[in-house]
Simulated scan of single mutants.
Amino acid sequence: MKKLILFTLLICISLFAFGQKRVVCCSKPSATRQFAMLAANPNFRMEHKTPLPIHFQSAIGKAITYKTADGKESAAYFLKAKKTTNNYILVIHEWWGLNDFVKRESEKIYNELGNVNIIDVDLYDGKVATTREDAGKFMQAVNENRAKAIINGAIAYTGKNARIATLGWCFGGGWSLQASLLAGKQAAACVMYYGMPEQDVNRLKTLNADVLGNFANKDQWINPKVVAKFDADMKKAGKKVYLHKYDADHGFANPSNPIYDSNATKDAYANTITFLKARLK
């Protein structure tokens, strides 16, 4: 009798474990994970042309380190405001990593906006890619818990009274939205350049910031259908999103990209600056 009870118990445990495995395996991956998984697609990798070299040396930007929520540290690139202010922008890099393009763009925005602090976070923990193969590996290897810890560490670094805007391109475009979600009531604005939107309407309901989205109609991945769904989801969530859609391709705003579109970039940049100025007064 005892053997029968033990056998039955083992079967129940096995069935439960199998059921749990099925739930985990069949659960829908997060928006950021979905985007990272695209790196396994050869067409997606080929869409990202090998970047032209950009060399940038700043006289005001500096490297910093801060504690992260997982008990570790993270390095970042920091542009400190000339006068004390609680306005911050968290900038999140493309799939190439925190390179000179990102630092140069951050300083351009810094000079344009006036008195603002900018932190370029590094979700690759120091790795920078110069080939699409390495970029794909780095993006796929990003651990979501570590990425969130890095972002939460940057939010803590800004201080509890900070008003936080977020901005990112490509891989960083999706994480820009996630960073604004993580910032909670401190979130003041979110700018996404052709990044994967959050697809959970209930999560979008917790968003405290308006969103500006710069998207590309020729993008095969964050395509017009994905953008239209994001627009509808934001409306369902009762949130404001301002969409700008260009007859350009994924990565159009990076001058180191051979498919760079100067006209689309100028318009997207002008809209971005206007949007941020209105929300970081």
Rank of each mutant, 00 (worst) to 15 (best):
G159F: 02
R132V: 07
T85A: 02
V227R: 11
E105I: 04
Q57Y: 08
N152D: 11
G97S: 09
Y124H: 10
Q57K: 14
T32V: 15
E105L: 08
I5A: 14
Y110R: 10
E105P: 00
H250V: 07
K28D: 10
A135N: 05
A69S: 14
H93D: 08
F230K: 05
N208D: 11
A270F: 01
G168I: 06
E144M: 15
L6F: 14
N202I: 04
I60N: 11
K2I: 13
L52W: 04
H55L: 11
A232F: 01
A63P: 03
W175K: 05
A278C: 02
T50Q: 13
K83Q: 15
T84S: 14
E198A: 02
M234E: 09
H244Y: 14
A156M: 06
N263M: 12
K80R: 11
L6T: 13
F215G: 08
A63E: 14
K240A: 15
I151W: 06
A75D: 13
N202W: 01
A135M: 12
N86Y: 00
K83F: 03
K205H: 00
V191L: 07
D267I: 11
A39T: 15
I5D: 03
A179H: 06
D233V: 03
M192R: 00
N161M: 04
G184P: 08
R22C: 03
A264T: 06
A179M: 06
Y77N: 02
L276A: 05
G251Y: 07
K3S: 13
A228H: 09
G184M: 00
I222R: 01
D125H: 12
P51Q: 09
G174W: 10
N43C: 06
E107K: 09
I64F: 04
P29A: 10
V23N: 10
W221L: 02
